[in-house]
């Protein structure tokens, strides 16, 4: 089983949700909307990357696109797929509300002919961007939970825990916040004087969110390892979890796991501290550091996800042992 597709899909879809949340926060942050508007462009690409990743994994991608939501009645995968579609549409709408904004929307500079009509449709909704954004963010969070629920299966005992959605939320907050921060930092570098203040405002919020998320992440990871080690519903699940833990701590995933800890937690915390420290003295350095921090967070989360999927031992693998112990 190739895990890459799942890793890219989950991390990027969560990144998109996180970025949307970050944009909503940014919307509340200050007056320099023109500066923040640029970052709104990244939500949809993140969704697209995740979609491409997951479809590339299917044997029949086109058929999958058409029919994947056919079993909403009982399949969590269908529900996930449906929610992803809904979220993707909302993400596009939300992005439109930024980029077609009459005053500072950047789309008209790019493609004027298309701009007119959509701008006209978007215009009445732009004033409601903040409340709509909050609603969309809530939908995004709902998507995170449904997405996590799709992996919480009896057949995957190691993932069948509350830690799965918690991991996903942490990923969303970490990567989404820092993605927006990274884009804004680049924008800032093009015109340092003009944007120093709004960037400072955003990073001031961002580092706290990231620090909080990293701490949450550490707690969730500790909880996850504790769960793998301890109680499980049945003998088979316990066995599968034990083997998963072995894979993580002394098996094929050990290297990746420690890279995850090193990059995703230790390096990230150091960088967050550095960003926080430089923010008051030198915003330009904080900008550079936040780009590095984004890279660190992204790599860390990809590693973490690789561990989560790669070390996973499905129940089917341990079932012979379970069956052999009966009678």
């Amino acid at each position: 089983m190739s895990h890459t597709a799942y890793v890219v899909f989950t991390v990027f879809s969560q990144m998109a949700v996180g970025a949307l949340i970050a944009m909503v926060i940014a919307d509340f942050l200050g007056k320099d909307k023109k500066f923040f508007e640029t970052a709104s462009w990244v939500i949809v690409p993140a969704v697209i990357i995740s979609l491409v990743a997951i479809l590339s994994h299917e044997a029949r991608p086109l058929l999958a696109m058409m029919t994947m939501s056919a079993n909403v009645g009982s399949s969590w995968l269908s529900r996930e797929s449906l929610m992803l579609t809904v979220f993707a549409i909302l993400a596009v709408i939300y992005t439109c509300l930024w980029i077609f904004e009459p005053e500072y929307g950047s789309f008209k500079r790019i493609c004027k002919p298309v701009h007119g009509l959509i701008a006209k449709i978007a215009k009445p909704f732009v004033p409601f961007r903040k409340p709509l954004g909050i609603i969309f963010a809530l939908v995004g969070i709902a998507f995170l939970f449904i997405s996590a629920r799709a992996y919480m299966l009896l057949g995957l005992p190691a993932m069948n825990h509350i830690t799965t959605p918690l991991f996903f939320i942490v990923t969303a907050l970490l990567t989404g916040t820092m993605l927006v921060a990274a884009v804004l930092s680049i924008k800032y570098m093009m015109a340092p004087k003009e944007y120093a203040e709004p960037l400072g405002a955003y990073l001031g919020v961002a580092w706290k969110v990231v620090l909080g998320s990293v701490i949450a992440g550490i707690i969730v990871l500790a909880g996850y390892l504790r769960i793998l080690k301890g109680a499980a519903a049945s003998y088979g699940a316990e066995l599968a979890q034990g083997m998963t833990l072995t894979n993580i701590l002394s098996g094929e995933m050990t290297t990746v796991f420690w890279l995850y800890v090193a990059i995703g937690f230790i390096l990230t915390v150091i960088l967050v501290a550095a960003v926080a420290a430089f923010l008051k003295k030198d915003v330009s350095k904080a900008a550079v550091l936040s780009i590095v921090l984004f890279a660190s967070v992204l790599v860390g989360e990809l590693m973490g996800r690789l561990v989560l999927f790669g070390a996973n031992v499905p129940l089917g693998e341990v079932m012979p042992y379970v069956l052999s112990s009966i009678i």
């Binding site: 299917e58 399949s75 009896l154 057949g155 089917g316």
Partner: peptide, 20 residues
């Protein structure tokens, strides 16, 4: 004819029956 090859059934199955 319907299968899209998502391999989700292999995760759900406790016996590892589905193959690709």
């Amino acid at each position: 004819d319907k299968c899209i090859g998502c391999e989700y059934c292999s995760w759900a199955c406790p016996f590892g029956a589905p193959k690709y």
